[in-house]
């Protein structure tokens, strides 16, 4: 399966298992979603379980919160993460706080799916990575898969989870992994081991990172599309890096991170999102606090620049092989 099929399969499996799971969003019903992630679901489960909504993100999330209060388990889609902002009040003030403010009387077991990230010439409003906004909010979980296998397992876990979850899908790798070499042909998931996805039920626990490449020279903390870019750069540079796919940003798998950095003594953080107050800043602070005496070089943050996401200059903006390579030289200088 590619990642879209895996995500589709996760929803299919969960709708089959739990009559309270419903899917809603702009174009998700009859049409099956602009990325095809919900294709076939309405035909299979009917219009009262999979339906199109008005173009109103605050309405989509507000309605989902109300459905959650009733006892349903909604999986709303926001067509692009760049368009999640109109729903921020409902997410931040309502979904994230409902359990807390009602001392558990009401909960918001919703899973907000949204394609995110750049590398597709999406320009300013089809490329953003707003995960740092959500990791800053108490009461929501933030999950970002990097393979079809993980996408399905994590999405099933998110739908089953009783807390509101933001599930960002890196659209650059919907069809195949992307190593950052935008000028070379890309692979399909069918050629990648993580493209093998069981058709039935399985889940991947939220809050657990995955060491995708064990190594000794440095630790690379990464998620989403950048997992594949970082992996490729490390292989090409011949560096024995330990690459950790965080998979869940909140709650974060701090143990895996801490153990790795204490072992390698070096830490590089890579994300597409803009640098200032990005999630990399939190990761850097945590590593610094917990691994200070093991660090042999300053922590490197390789990120998007602090600008809106550009269109024509995309590959100058994207934290690709060159930027990661330069950071690698710096961090390994005295090794």
């Amino acid at each position: 399966m590619n990642m879209i099929q895996a995500i589709n399969s996760a929803m299919d499996v969960m709708m089959g298992r739990d009559p309270d799971v419903i899917v809603m969003g702009e174009d998700v019903g009859y049409f099956g979603g602009v990325f095809r992630a919900t294709a076939g679901l309405q035909a299979k489960y009917g219009k009262t379980r999979v339906f199109d909504t008005p173009i109103s993100e605050c309405g989509i999330i507000g309605v989902a919160v109300g459905m959650g209060a009733y006892g349903l388990r909604p999986v709303p889609e926001i067509q692009f993460a760049d368009y999640i902002y109109p729903a921020l009040d409902q997410l931040v003030s309502e979904a994230a706080r409902l359990r807390y403010r009602s001392a558990g009387e009401f909960t918001a077991p919703i899973t907000v799916r949204s394609p995110f990230g750049g590398g597709i010439f999406g320009g300013q409003t089809h490329s953003q990575s707003p995960e740092g906004i959500f990791t800053h909010i108490s009461g929501v979980k933030t999950v970002i898969p990097s393979t079809p296998y993980d996408a399905k397992g994590l999405l099933i876990a998110a739908i089953e989870d009783n807390d509101p979850t933001i599930f960002f899908e890196p659209k650059r790798i919907y069809n195949g992994p992307f190593d950052g070499h935008w000028d070379k042909p890309t692979q399909n998931w069918s050629q990648h081991p993580a493209g093998e996805v069981p058709t039935g039920y399985y889940k991947i626990e939220l809050g657990k990172a995955k060491v995708v490449r064990p190594g000794e020279a440095l630790t690379v903390l990464v998620y989403g599309t950048m997992v594949h870019v970082a992996l490729a750069v490390m292989e090409e540079a011949g560096v024995d890096a330990e690459v950790i796919d965080l998979r869940t940003l909140v709650p974060l798998d701090i143990e895996t991170i801490e153990a790795s950095v204490k072992k390698t003594g070096r830490c590089m953080i890579v994300h597409e999102a803009t640098r200032t107050s990005g999630f990399g800043s939190e990761l850097s602070a945590l590593v610094q606090e917990r691994c200070f005496y093991h660090l042999e070089a300053p922590i490197e943050r390789v990120t998007g620049f602090d600008t809106p996401y550009p269109h024509s200059l995309e590959w100058a903006y994207f934290p690709g092989p060159v930027r990661i390579g330069e950071a690698l030289k710096k961090i390994m200088k005295d090794a």
Binding site: G62, V65, Y70
Partner: peptide
């Protein structure tokens, strides 16, 4: 909108 969602859920069920 939460009330609408609750009402929609009631109708859907």
């Amino acid at each position: 909108p939460q009330a609408v969602g609750w009402a929609m859920a009631s109708a859907a069920k």
